[in-house]
Design a protein around this nucleic acid. Structure first.
Length: 428
RNA sequence: GGAGAAAUACCCAAGCCUGGUUGAAGGGACUGGUCUUGAAAACCAGCAGGUCGGAGACGGCGCGGGGGUUCGAAUCCCUCUUUCUCCGCCA
């Protein structure tokens, strides 16, 4: 969603931007919105005039009542009745137009940053930078499910029976490792000055539509039956939603928070749930970071945020790279986005463990998050980034810290969260 | 889950019964001024912030949100949300 003024003032720019993302059929939409907007403003202008007239006459009745001029009151009421009829008609028109415009506007993608590479889909994403040597050991790295199994750390069969495909039991040291990584990620961000927060894990539909596009909503969100509640797909949803319809004081910006939550995703999209392991699942846990800041600081924070994730993974001896999202792969609300990918010595390629996004004012516009300074109020910029999503992060950790005998090295950074252990050894 | 009470501008708070120059009294905070060497205090003055339309003059909306009654709603009615108190239940 963008500012409708942009369509009023610079239709071509909006079309240009859409071209970068799709080839395609949303272009006529811009002209449609433009026309609807003209009609809407005309209707509003006329209705406003009539409303002013009506207000004035109503006030007159007030004084007439005091002076007890009954005849004039009756007359005046009649004229008011007539304007009311007209107003009613115009209001219906206003409402229909407004609704139509809003619906169409919701699907207009955000203006992407000029630095975003142009491409059709995720195949055309661009590697930005590597951090750490993508190391392949002399022995073969087993599938992460096997690594876990060797430590008696996973039970997918039972989970299949209790909950179905896409769920899992993590057990013993593996479960502890999972929590340890989350705790470490939390403290890592606290040390960077972020405020820790545990948000609600369910949110109302109004918040959902504020933070994501409709397609995403259908593909991701679990709905609670009989209630206007959705299980969050990421704590970003409740964290950004926290600020809806707020005017944040200038001096309170930037708001930097790190939040923990379980995340629930239907994963209806193209990939589906894979059969083995816990790479793509319906339920995982995540340490997230969000920043709400002034538009001018957005790009600075964007860089700092993905860098934090890189630093986090490097502190766990996991090689990573950043992959820039191309225009076609960029979600509609995003201005720019990159994935942080961890090295898999088993697959000998990188895989996604996190995603850093700057949304410009798209979420702020939908949710009404503003700030005020001497130039008036304006929408803030919102950003979000994964610190650690796990079990996916756990997979990266296990593959990169595995020894030939099946034991797992615990780096010094994580050791305190594992009761001081420096290595996990499989029983016999 | 049950029973009550409440939500008014940056904050506190009147108004609601008895609808009409109240788009909102009074404080506090804030801004400017007088006084002071400076500050405090005192006094004087300003002060809805928002949002939409308009080039502007202006105008519309706006007393938690949404409806309704009425010529007219902060005020009456319905509904939703949130907060507080009490009871129940639970980690």
């Amino acid at each position: 969603m963008i500012d409708i003024k942009l369509i009023r003032e610079n239709k071509e720019l909006v079309k240009e931007n859409i071209k970068k993302k799709f080839q395609d059929p949303k272009l006529p939409l811009v002209d449609q919105i433009f026309e609807l907007d003209l009609k809407y403003r005309e209707a509003k202008k006329e209705a406003d005039q009539l409303r002013a007239e009506k207000n004035e006459n109503s006030a007159k009745i007030g004084t007439l009542v005091r002076d007890k001029k009954t005849e004039e009151i009756v007359k005046l009421k009649e004229t008011i009745q007539q304007t009311s009829e007209k107003i009613k008609q115009l209001e219906t028109l206003e409402e229909t137009l407004e609704k139509e415009i809003k619906e169409k506007m919701m699907t207009i993608p955000n203006i992407i940053d000029s630095s975003v590479p142009i491409g059709k889909d995720d195949n055309e994403n661009v590697e930005n930078e590597k951090f750490g040597e993508p190391f392949v050991p002399t022995f073969e790295i087993p599938h992460h499910a096997d690594i876990m199994a060797k430590l008696s750390g996973i039970d997918k069969e039972s989970a299949g029976r209790t909950s179905g495909n896409g769920f899992y039991y993590l057990i013993g040291d593996i479960a502890r490792l999972h929590s340890a990584m989350i705790s470490y990620a939390r403290d890592f961000m606290i040390d960077k000055g972020f405020t820790y927060c545990i948000p609600p894990f369910m949110i109302r539909s109004e918040v959902v539509t504020g933070v994501m596009s409709f397609e995403e909503m259908d593909e991701m969100m679990y709905k609670i039956e009989g209630e206007d509640l959705y299980l969050i797909g990421t704590s970003e949803h409740s964290m950004i939603g926290k600020f809806q319809n707020q005017i944040v004081k200038k001096e309170e910006l930037p708001i930097c928070m790190t939040s923990y939550s379980p995340c629930f995703r239907k994963e209806v999209g193209s990939h589906g749930i894979e059969e083995r392991g816990v790479y793509r699942v319906h339920q995982f846990e995540k340490q997230e970071m969000i920043v709400i800041c002034d538009a001018s600081d957005g790009m600075g924070w964007y860089k700092k945020m993905w860098e934090s994730t890189v630093e986090f993974f490097r502190s766990l001896d996991i090689p990573v790279r950043t992959l820039e999202c191309c225009s076609g792969d960029l979600a509609n609300l995003k201005v720019k986005s990159c994935d942080v990918e961890a090295w898999s010595p088993r697959q000998k390629k990188y895989f996604e463990v996190g995603s850093c996004s700057i949304l410009g004012d798209a979420q702020a516009r939908r949710l009404g998050i503003r700030t005020k300074d001497q130039n008036g109020t304006h929408y803030v910029t919102t950003l979000n980034n994964t610190v650690l999503a796990t079990p996916r992060g756990l997979i990266a950790f296990l593959e990169n810290n595995l020894n030939e005998d099946g034991s797992i090295n615990i780096p010094a950074s994580l050791s305190p969260y594992m009761g001081g252990k420096t290595v996990l050894t499989p029983k016999k």
